[in-house]
Design a protein around this nucleic acid. Structure first.
Ligand code: MN
Ligand code: MN
Ligand code: ZN
Ligand code: ZN
Lengths: 140, 140
DNA sequence: GCTGCTATTGATAATGAGTCTCAGAACTTA
DNA sequence: TAAGTTCTGAGACTCATTATCAATAGCAGC
């Protein structure tokens, strides 16, 4: 069971109850560093014998995303992927267009330039998506 | 009628026929620099009295995207947006999370760093998505 | 310009990720 | 324990996009 504290805190902030389903979904999301979709998370939970529904998975993920415990990724294949944010460092993604493998990257200079671009326009940066679609070394 | 040449070339390359529908869809896409979805393009054509169906709009857009005449944008709202690539310069996008306004940006340094990151991993960069979600000056 | 072959079109059905509904279950507080 | 409230799960629903397939249009050869 991974960090009920963060979950409880988020639920309290939202005025929501702490439940077995919500804990198990949060646990499952923290169980790996993969980038899984809602269906994969749902099926993992069912395989472990948890009593949970698709609707509750989606609803709980929304809460987790809203409270910054989980990040939602849209990779353009029609299904949203999710990753936990336990290890707080920001990163962006490389995606192999052949095999689908996902790698992570982070570049301070890019992050700074982004801020500059936005500030120069008088805007405020809320979040960003930066995805590099590649052919990985295995697939070349 | 905007540049039947590029369209005809792409159709020939794909072994496809040149049709009124395909020309009018390409014309409509070149008519503005906005970032419109398939439904908006479809409705514009119908308003102009063109005989065209949603299915053909989607099918033709696919051909245009595949042949680099049009770029597909996924902004996370469930509808894909499209922009023509007549003016060949690459750019990325800023999107206001409040009013939806879309601005464009381009930074050589970021483009170079992207290439470096990918090359260092031994990968090959195919394309990238870089979107800055902001609150624009009108919405602050 | 006709003929015949084949690609294209459009109406409509199907798909599928995600959302909504609502009755029953599970908490909470008194 | 009882009343009031939130949660859950099954399944209906949404809506952008894709698939189907009979009718139509483009095209090559005559
Ligand atoms: Mn990641
Ligand atoms: Mn643009
Ligand atoms: Zn690969
Ligand atoms: Zn705005």
């Amino acid at each position: 069971m991974a960090s009920p504290n963060q979950l409880k805190k988020a639920l309290k902030k939202e005025g929501l109850r702490y439940t077995q389903q919500r804990q198990s979904i949060w646990d499952e999301m923290c169980a790996t560093d993969e980038h899984r979709d809602a269906e994969e998370i749902y099926l993992s939970l069912r395989n472990e014998g948890m009593s949970v529904s698709r609707a509750t998975v989606y609803r709980t993920i929304d809460v987790l995303v809203k409270n910054n415990l989980v990040r939602k990724l849209e990779l353009g294949d029609g299904r949203a992927r999710y990753e936990h944010k336990m290890d707080l460092e920001h990163h962006d993604h490389l995606i192999c267009v052949q095999c689908g493998k996902i790698e992570e990257f982070m570049d301070e200079t890019i992050e700074e330039i982004q801020e500059k671009i936005v500030n120069n326009l008088g805007f405020k940066l809320i979040r960003h998506i930066h995805q590099l679609f590649v052919i990985c070394n295995n697939c070349r």
